[in-house]
Amino acid sequence: MTTSTTGTEPGVSRAEYCVIACAEAWRGDGEVLAAAMGVVPTLGARLAKLTFEPDLLITDGEALLAADVPALGATPAAVEGALPYRKHLELVAMGHRHVMMGAGQLDRHGNQNISAIGDWSRPARQLLGVRGAPGNTVNNPTSYWIPRHSTRVFVTGRVDVVSGVGHGRLHGTAGRFQDLRRIVTDLAVLDFGGPERAIRLVSVHPGATVEQVVAATGFPLVLPDAVPSTREPSAEELRLIRDVLDPRGARDREVRG
């Protein structure tokens, strides 16, 4: 159930602004796989497909390509193909894919860490491992979803283990397919539009402030002269999120407020 009010549009929850901001990440992508990790990015990809980006390919969260746009956790009514992990990894190499990943740490150059916190050889906290992040970030348009914007994630120096590759680390032809797009957090939208492609604030979700974002970021955030608000969802978008894609309100458990 969505009960909280944080924005100018009455009744729009923070999670719903995040879904809108995630959906916008795939705008203009056309016929590529929207590979979404997390509840809010999954809703964003599906909302984009239902509205302004109908040619996107989406999965059921497992090995099937959904031909329709199912609700979160629902089985697709129709399937347009299979995408088992081996094919998925081939698709990463082929490039027809825009991924939105999470991050344990992210630095101002866009390096991401999902491997381990601390010294890799004896980590203070073991995370997942690098998974597909190295391959994703040298092959595919890549965005990030950070459900809890904090200085623990947006670190002051460099991330401990570079899993997803940021700017300035690929030389010559190695970086020809690198394409870091945007970062959506529970507070704001960021991109890589700063000097030397550093992370820049793009918009702040209604109810959050620029000061809050700056305080929750461990590195000096590039700030535009004026920071707009993340756009409002339309009534139709809200209906799709609430009644069609996520009637059980899983989004509000990933992002509170």
Partner: peptide, 28 residues
Amino acid sequence: DEGMLLQGLTAAAHRLPFLPTRAGLGSD
């Protein structure tokens, strides 16, 4: 990286000493 593991197994199955990939470049 997941794709590197796939390349390593494929190289072994194909009796090749290695297979090239872009995955891993620039990363730790």
